[in-house]
Design a binder for these strands. Structure first.
Length: 851
RNA sequence: GCCCGGAUGGUGAAACUGGUAGACACAAGGGACUUAAAAUCCCUCGGGGGAAACCCCGUGCGAGUUCGAUUCUCGCUCCGGGCACCA
């Protein structure tokens, strides 16, 4: 596959030339004239991994680049920036393997990424580049943490973590599966460790409410709503028989309390020991130990296929609605992390309770009519029965009445519960932000209560280390930096110990959109006036994989900052768009080994390897491990960045990923070659372009104005694939006509410029323009030019297409109907029939209903 | 299991609030130009029938609403993503 030899379009000289020129001219410097409207378009910034980019990554960047370039031409100040989410575990691991410092690894990876992005001609203002691992950046991450701490939203707590003894480190939930570390297979155990938590649960209601007005994909909003998981119900107090203890449970169905036949505590519930009778003590303890060894994740992930387990404590609780004693059980189908860690079970109307009751022979009492509770739990609607004063009521009324009853009898209240948990914010890792926290060093060498360092002590810089693994006793790696860890209070001289946990990778990405506003200021995190001008982000484009975590965490910080009066908007990202994942063909043999495209041969219908064994070909997500990545650098070499940019968006709608095909890039290259020839000719004597001073034909003009209209709309709707098709149609029309006016070509280059900036600039200058096309005005389309004198009307008989007629665009209904009836084929189908109905759709079709 | 998306030619895909299914591109085939090749330009390109005009069938499957359904409704199948004992 190669590009045309005769064409004068040589991307290898044009693209570097204009990239250099734009850089010299500072063409993408963000404007500061605040009288102009602003547009903040943001890409989810990447984690600079060691392997570099493949062609799937820049799809979103190209889309935002087109929006940015077009908006500049439309007269907006555009904030268009790029940075690096550069703290994180992979760099730390890579550094460990190479025996270098994570900072060096990071710098090298950033350089690779940046080089690849720059070749694509993306119009970032690189003077605003940031990296979360730079001291000048993380100083302000620490500053925000102080705000959270001061507001009581950061606290320490003992929580279970995934501890991997072999690696001597704590692992994230997503790194653990089936009790082992997914990468090495080393076993992971649960340990309770003191961890920093952020109280995101305080913002559950705020985060839920804020979603309504956001211009986000409905699916993402739904996922966040589900993640937050608001449920209304009641908290009910059950006193324990013959004891002063009482158990509090949360339920969304307080109306079924009369059907409560037992109570269940989570194995970790603090009352388990005190309610267990001496006779049951051994059994309960054995059960709890076993449950403790299974991680929360395991307990939950295999839940559906597992039969329920549990053990009776020996005691009874008193049901407050009827004073009946019901047994108290311990079972791991109740989770300590949700509600109160205890439930009352109503097996007749809850699937899980039903299964458990069946398993252990516990009674099942129907309290809502409508099902058959001997067969299965009934969760549908129906009148209450066997429920005393609730009998006959529907669910909503029964709930109201029972809550009134509970409140009147001091046995419970109506409450709201959330599925959302507090955010585990500390990591026992090196390559992250140190926490701006110190503890008094007590006489025995242990740590006292945490307190914040003063703002003037920021940044708390990350000390240099050579060994990044946690210490033998499980302390984070920063504990090795003894000199750094031991410090003194600058005012009192008190001995202090620095916090040795670092922040998770999410921290830096939580607020980077704010730092881009004033990236080079070291006196403030962001300038308040500039913040008020630029925020919120008008368009945020990135992968759907961040639907909950990153987007929820960022919103949380923004809400807190808004409550503190530090930012002007409550929501950070007004409009969100998820670009799709790019797929490519992969080749795999029976053993599951992958092959590169170059290693396989076509054979009949399929492909074989060198040994002639048939291979399975599949369309899979593009990734290094599947041997199906395409490097954007290769595409830039072969076809040029402009062709690559066009293909990224032409291949499919932005929200669908699409299947990569190098031949498609060639197709875009052919299109650009035709654009070149229209203006420059093919380099031979007999053809020196198609430009005329006279006006283009009506057909050519119609195609041009249609393209202008659709490209203009696409800047807003992001439907670039069809916009590009319309530009192609114009170029095909103009090529066929062999003549197009200089003026029209001038207009066309301006709508092409956001897509293929290098070629457009080259040809723009060839037309005699002296200012850069980057700063040219956006062309308007002329509605009148879109209309044609005649239109084609489809003619149907009984809903089937029988002919087409050509009529004047302004022909009235009677004229059109007459012409339709006269059409040869149509008249044949109408012959001998009576027309019962004439359907007339102006400008489109007529349909005769006849029999 | 639950929630959210999808399914259209050999391929990626178009089709605006129900109105000419397959724009545009890739691949394939044919032709022109050329000593030849590349490039370029032109033609064909959902399936079947027919010399042609045209006809029949066709948007995952099965029903329905309608003059008319890729589009709306109901019931399925398959694929992708998310959540998964959340009381």
């Amino acid at each position: 596959m190669s590009v045309s030899g005769m064409s004068g379009y040589d991307h290898k000289t044009i693209e570097p030339r204009w990239q250099d020129r734009w850089q010299q001219q500072d063409a993408y410097r963000v404007g500061i004239d605040k009288s102009k409207p602003k547009y903040y378009v943001l890409d989810m910034f990447p984690y600079p991994s060691g392997v570099g980019l493949h062609v799937g990554h820049p799809k979103g960047y190209v889309a935002t680049d087109i929006v940015a370039r077009a908006r500049r031409m439309m007269g907006h100040n555009v904030l268009r920036v790029m940075g690096w989410d550069s703290f994180g575990l992979p760099s730390e691991r890579q550094a460990e393997r190479e025996g270098t410092h994570p900072r060096d690894v990071t710098d090298r990876n950033v350089a690779t990424f940046k080089g690849q992005l720059q070749r694509l001609g993306l119009s970032y203002d690189w003077s605003r580049e940031i990296a979360t691992s730079d001291v000048g950046y993380y100083k302000w991450t620490q500053w925000i943490f102080l705000k959270l701490f001061e507001k009581g939203l950061a606290y320490e707590a003992d929580v279970p973590v995934n501890w991997c003894p072999a690696l001597g480190t704590v692992l994230a939930n997503e790194e653990v599966k089936d009790g082992v570390y997914i990468e090495t297979g080393d076993p992971v155990e649960r340990r309770s460790m003191r961890q920093w938590m952020l109280k995101i649960t305080d913002y559950a209601e705020s985060l839920l409410a804020g979603l309504d007005d956001l211009d986000w994909p409905e699916g993402v909003k739904e996922m966040q709503r589900h993640w937050i998981g608001r449920s209304e119900g009641a908290s009910v107090k059950f006193s324990v028989q013959d004891s002063t203890d009482s158990v509090e449970v949360f339920t969304t169905r307080p109306d079924t309390l009369f059907g409560g036949t037992y109570l269940v505590l989570a194995p970790e519930h603090p009352l388990v020991t005190s309610v267990t009778t001496a006779k049951q003590a051994d059994a309960v303890q054995a059960y709890c130990v076993e449950a403790a060894n299974r991680s929360d994740r395991d307990r939950q992930s295999d839940a559906p296929d597992h039969t329920k387990t549990g053990v009776f404590t020996g005691s009874y609780a008193i049901n407050p609605v009827n004073d009946e004693p019901i047994p108290i059980w311990v079972a791991d189908y109740v989770l300590m992390g949700y509600g109160t860690g205890a439930i009352f079970a109503c097996p007749a109307h809850d699937d899980r309770d039903f299964e458990f009751a069946r398993q252990f022979g516990l009674p099942i009492i129907e309290v809502v009519a409508g099902g058959n509770v001997d067969e299965a739990a009934y969760t549908g609607p129906g009148p209450h029965v066997n429920s005393g004063f609730l009998d006959g009521l529907d669910e909503a009324d029964a709930k109201r009445k029972i809550i009134d009853f509970l409140e009147a009898n001091d046995a419970g209240t109506g409450t709201v519960n959330y599925r959302l948990r507090d955010w585990l914010f500390s990591r026992q890792r090196y390559w992250g932000e140190p926490m701006p926290i110190v503890h008094p060093e007590l006489a025995d060498g242990s740590r006292g209560a945490p307190r914040a360092v003063t703002e003037s002590e920021l940044p708390v810089t990350l000390p240099d280390l050579t060994d990044y693994r946690p210490t033998e006793d499980g302390a984070p790696p920063l504990a090795r930096a003894a000199q750094w860890m031991h410090t003194i209070d600058p005012e009192t001289g008190e001995a202090l110990l620095r916090e040795t946990n670092t922040m998770p990778q999410w921290a830096g990405s939580c607020w980077y959109y704010l730092r881009f506003i004033s990236p080079n200021r070291d006196d403030v995190a962001w300038d308040p006036e500039d913040e008020a001008y630029w925020m919120p982000v008008d368009l945020y484009v990135g992968g759907a994989e961040h639907a909950t975590l990153h987007l929820l965490y960022s919103r949380f910080w923004q809400h807190v900052l808004h409550d503190l009066g530090l930012v002007s908007t409550r929501e950070p990202f007004q409009r969100l768009f998820n670009q799709g994942m790019v797929h490519a063909t992969s080749f795999k043999d029976e053993r599951g080994k992958y092959y590169y495209r170059e290693e396989v041969k076509e054979a009949g219908d399929g492909f074989v390897n060198d040994a002639g064994e048939p291979l399975v070909t599949r369309r899979e997500k593009m990734s290094k491990s599947r041997y199906n990545v395409v490097n954007p650098d290769d595409m830039c070499d072969q076809f040029g960045a402009d062709s690559l940019r066009l293909y990224e968006l032409f291949m499919s709608p932005l929200e669908d990923g699409g299947d990569w095909d190098n031949a498609g890039v060639l197709g875009m290259r052919r299109f650009l070659d035709r654009v070149w020839r229209l203006i420059m000719g093919d380099g031979t004597e007999r053809d020196s372009g198609a430009l005329t001073e006279a006006a283009s034909s009506a057909d050519v003009q119609r195609a041009l104005h249609n393209a202008i209209r659709n490209v203009t709309e696409a800047v807003d709707t992001l439907k670039f694939n069809t916009a590009i098709a319309d530009m192609i149609v114009f170029v095909n029309e103009a090529t066929k006509a062999k003549a197009v006016s200089r003026n029209d070509m001038n207009r066309f280059l301006r709508i092409l410029a956001p897509f293929a900036p290098h070629l457009a600039e080259e040809l723009w200058q060839a037309l005699g323009e002296t200012n850069s096309i980057v700063a040219a005005d956006w062309p308007e389309f002329d509605e009148a030019k879109l209309k044609s004198d005649t239109i084609t009307i489809a003619v149907q008989v009984m809903g089937k297409l029988r002919g087409k007629i050509e009529v004047d665009a302004d022909a009235d209904k009677d004229t059109v109907l007459a012409a339709a009836k006269a059409e040869e084929n149509v008249s044949r189908f109408l012959e001998g029939k009576t027309i019962r109905k004439e359907v007339f759709v102006p400008g489109r079709l007529v349909n005769f209903v006849a029999n």
